[in-house]
Design a protein around this nucleic acid. Sequence first.
DNA 1: TTGCTGACCTGCACGC
DNA 2: TGCGTGCAGGTCAGCA
Length: 310
Amino acid sequence: MPELPEVEVVRRGLARWAAGRPVSGVEVLDARSTRRHDGGPAAFESQLTGRRLTAPERRGKYLWVPLAAPGGMALVAHLGMSGQLLISSPETPAQRHLRIRVLLEDPVGQGPDAPDAEPALELRFVDQRIFGGLFLDPLVPSADRADQLLPASVAHIARDPLDPYFDADSVHVRLRARKTGIKRALLDQGLVSGIGNIYADEALWRARLHYARPTETLNRGESARLLAAVRDVMEDALSQGGTSFDSLYVNVNGESGYFERSLNVYGQAGRPCPRCAAEHRDTVIVKDRFMNRSSAYCPRCQPVPRRARW
DNA sequence: TTGCTGACCTGCACGC
DNA sequence: TGCGTGCAGGTCAGCA
């Protein structure tokens, strides 16, 4: 399922294939995929048609493509659990869960019959579970950097660990001020963004921390170790093209990533812990139910804290 | 203000 | 074979 590294892979693909192209047509095949757009699918289609896409940007798992002036608007995408943004030929048969198609013309706008014209492309939003969607949103200044614009609906999202302006000390202070468990805090996109269930489990395993560790007991070194583990997991995933778990994630060209082969705890319940099973053969990864989802950890190298916040 | 829970949503695996 | 149930989980509204 798409998390930050997967969204970044998609952003790079859009920068390569979609930036600079004008939108000549939009078709919303499932209104639920534009439910976050004011005015519904018809307004989405009419307001996007005729606009030109510029360089895509990302914060956490939100991706947006600012539209060329006028208007200060952006096409915002969230992939939810199963969303895909694909670039394909308009003639390619529709995918099973195709929800929105956006026709992109030649970037120079010289018409399809010009000898050096690039062929038209289609940006397709495919989403099995319809947790994601596309919408248009006005751009507003970022709360901490007025020269940086982002969609209004993304303004409450914190910077992610791959952001050059990510402030680990500030996150440590805010973590200490919370009264909750560490995994619950990691999944709060208002505290630190881009972390989903898979990478939360993987980062906690790398940092040797149990998911129910109270945030107010973390010292500065432990916070730093955890945030470094988050960044390492994301960078590893990014270098391998993302996590292609259950085939619900592909890049804009429809190719899967390979990070799933590197997962140490997520989806590994019942298997030996890759770190400590060499010395203790009876150590296997455990899966708990947590926050209406699963949480995997090694009971030996991530022991349950004395004072846990479940 | 902060923390927590349930709803949204579909496809697959599994048991009967 | 067909049906029902549980599970997967990111985000947000609503409640305590």
